[in-house]
Design a protein around this nucleic acid. Structure first.
Lengths: 311, 311
DNA sequence: GCCTAGGTCCCGTAA
DNA sequence: TTACGGGGCCTAGGC
């Protein structure tokens, strides 16, 4: 693995290294004293200070201070990086079009410049998303309510696509809005938009009701009021098992669901999903182990360092 | 400025340096081959690959690949960083509570480790925000429509706080929802929530109308339909500044300082709107200069480098 | 701590 | 390209 590093380089030296790093497609970090300007969708200025600039080969640019997860300034992927020496400073500029945006970083001093060849390994696997929650519901629609039958996912409406659409035990249309986490008023509005759109569809009996159900781990008080005003309902449900199944079971919210689920029997054959119903335990991991047995069990064999946050 | 850098250190050496860097409150970058695990609100795994790990003294942690502006994994500020050598690997772990979340980065090889003392300079000045749009409207309410009078900002309702509340020339209540950029259906829903909440306030004449106006640079077709369905209106207006109306005028700090903002301190009570709103020309720049005269005019005196995005 | 909404949101997906 | 909605969103401002 090639890593090129310059310590307190002159602007010319830094410029030269940036040039070749751009050519190599390296990931670049520049640490130094700089001011930053941005102009595009908005505009901003940032006075002199020490920051870390990261330039990625895909055109991304990040300016980080010593605080916050979000960069103080940035440029999204697809931008074009330029470097030059102007007015006695090293200027790095990242530009893009549609929208036209320019990020300019002017270094009065470069403390360190590194260029690294980075390759692949971007295959992140995530669990606990709204898609996981949807899978869970499609596999066992009774979790929403006994007799619920999903008929479509992402069904389009005049107000946009609905997460899940279906009918209840009495044949009434039901719109589900799913959220992976606790939600507020905006989720109720979103649900209302879809329900209203369905209710007004021309081929529908104007007198036929359309139910709206917000499926989320929990909702705020205000959201509950708005939900009640519209005659909508809330079903407490969350994505399956982001926490490891072994220990640390946190099904605390299940109490909110209250409704004794009449045992998760064979789903009413949800047309759209004929998968084996036993998959209700989709979160199971064979031979699950605790978080890190090797490390957790081992006594400190080689020392350890820690630091407390000081915000 | 102190910068400590280790090249291809042993895990023990890296651990030692991390320890002291934590103590110093340095900003740390670690570049190497690693796998990443996250567990908390969701969970994720990332296989072996070369990445850049950034550890901030405020407890933030970022794992960056060679692509995207968003880190592939991260930890927000307030987390606590730990380092240790386990199973022949350098393990960096960042944990936080409420919610409980853990980020674990295991390095099989460290190509470079740097620690930098970063100080201050976080005073970012931004223009073009929704707050700027609101200022613009409060300074000249006629931009919304002739005779409009704002009476409150962030006025609370049963559905949440409204951006601007006021009355039109005929005395009818008006709710404004402001957006700094082009908007879709969600903004219409948001406006509808507020209008409905105001309309149902007990002390209000049930027959009295409440108007809803969406103030944004533009809206999508679907948003326009939803807006029309509800009888709401759209006023095309954007924040002052970010877009360059004339010839690349970009509000240098000097111009802003020169701007007689005088008592522009939030007319909380615009009722007494007797003042002649000469501030209508708030977008004017005195002695505007082009983007960067020194650099732009100068011919390439010292070389330049550029790189095209390759995505 | 929770709630509410903005953001240069970023990002993926589909039309 | 635009549109639309999810996100481990993050962040700021109230309460």
């Amino acid at each position: 693995m090639t890593v090129t590093t310059l310590h307190t380089p002159s602007h010319r030296e830094a410029l030269w290294e940036l040039e070749s790093a751009f050519d190599r497609g390296d990931l670049i970090t520049v640490f130094g004293e700089c001011s930053v300007e941005y102009e595009g969708r908005a505009a901003s200025t940032l006075g002199l200070g020490n920051r870390l600039l990261v330039l990625k080969p895909d055109g991304s640019a990040l300016v980080h201070t010593d605080e916050k997860r979000t960069p103080v300034n940035w440029q999204p992927p697809g931008s074009t990086h330029h470097a030059a020496v102007r007015d006695g400073r090293l200027r790095v500029r990242s530009e893009r079009t549609s929208p036209d945006e320019t990020l300019t970083v002017r270094f009065t001093a470069v403390h360190q410049l590194s260029a690294m060849g980075v390759t692949g390994g971007r295959d992140l696997e995530v669990t606990g998303s709204e898609a996981d929650l949807r899978r869970r519901i499609l596999e066992d629609p009774d979790l929403v309510e006994p007799g619920f039958e999903p008929t479509a996912v992402e069904r389009d409406s005049a107000a946009g696509p609905m997460d899940v659409f279906g009918v209840d035990a009495s044949g009434t249309a039901v719109v589900l809005e799913l959220k992976r986490r606790r939600v507020g008023p905006s989720a109720v509005s979103q649900l209302a938009r879809y329900v209203d759109a369905v209710a007004e569809e021309p081929d529908r009996d104007p007198d036929a009701a359309v139910r709206g159900i917000l499926v989320a781990p929990s909702i705020t008080d205000r959201a509950a009021e708005l939900l009640a005003d519209r005659g909508f309902e809330h079903v407490a449900l969350e994505p399956p098992e982001p926490e490891t199944p072994g220990a640390e079971t946190k099904a605390t919210d299940s109490a909110e669901a209250a409704e004794p689920k009449a045992e998760t029997t064979e789903p009413e054959e949800p047309k759209a999903e004929t998968t084996e119903p036993e998959a209700e335990t989709l979160g199971t991991e064979t031979a699950s182990d605790d978080d890190e047995p090797i490390e957790a069990d081992a006594p400190e064999p080689s020392g350890s360092a820690s630091r407390e946050s000081q915000q």
